[in-house]
Amino acid sequence: MTRRYDPDRRTRILRAALDTIAEHGVAGTTHRRIAAAADVPLGSMTYHFAGLDDLLTEAFTLLADTVSARFTERLAAAVTRAEACEAVVDLVVDDDWATPRNLLLSYELYAYAARVPALRSVMQEWMGKSRAALEQHFSPETARALDAMIEGLSIHRSVDRAPADRDEVRGIVARLTGTALPLPRQAGT
């Protein structure tokens, strides 16, 4: 029997774990479901990971690292404080950032971290990266408030029947930062 060369298997398993969590929740995630989603033998699960908690921790770490890198990139592109405020607005309202899948995975991570102390460090590191990105433009206190606002409004936007629109979010950001933001230019003006 020949061994299949599969250098990306571990990463594929981690991505499949996130897909499985998004579809079934943490409670419905099993080695068997992840293996099927990753198209790997069930034995690969225990070969690459000490157990399901280890696998879930690494999968959620991958999620946190991926999302925080995009968050950091968006804020790093801002040159002025007004641009940084607009970046914060984008992080709340643009579907590129707060995708339904990422929000769902974030909810699962929050709930899982509340029950599994080892996951709290993943959440704390994610919050630390978010705040560090915000602190490029804002005081630590303001960065903390903005980080909480981004999380809270993102959650609300995913379930609210009338979620805050871009202008409402822009007003909240302006109040939190003490920055007078210009109104967006209307097409044709």
Rank of each mutant, 00 (worst) to 15 (best):
M127S: 14
Y110I: 12
A132V: 09
T142D: 03
S130N: 13
Y110D: 10
A132W: 02
Y107F: 09
P117Y: 06
Y112H: 14
S121H: 14
V92E: 01
L119E: 11
E108L: 08
E108V: 08
V93M: 03
R120M: 13
D95H: 04
E108I: 07
A113Y: 08
V88A: 13
Y112D: 09
M127A: 14
A111E: 12
Y107P: 00
D96Y: 10
L105W: 02
V116Q: 14
R120Q: 15
K129M: 09
A114S: 13
A111Q: 07
T99L: 01
L134Q: 05
L104Y: 05
L103Y: 02
A113P: 06
S106V: 00
A111R: 12
R131D: 14
N102W: 06
E141G: 06
Q136W: 01
V89Q: 05
R101F: 00
W97N: 01
A133Q: 03
E125V: 11
A114P: 04
A98T: 07
A133D: 07
A118I: 07
A133I: 05
V122M: 04
F138I: 06
M123D: 09
L109V: 06
V116E: 15
L91P: 07
A118Q: 11
A87W: 04
A114M: 12
A118P: 00
L105V: 04
E135A: 15
T99M: 03
Y110P: 00
D95I: 02
Q136Y: 01
G128P: 13
L103M: 12
T99D: 05
A133L: 04
W97P: 00
N102I: 00
P140T: 12
E108M: 05
E135N: 10
V88D: 05
L104P: 00
A111D: 13
A98S: 11
S106H: 05
R131Q: 15
W97G: 00
A87R: 03
V93D: 05
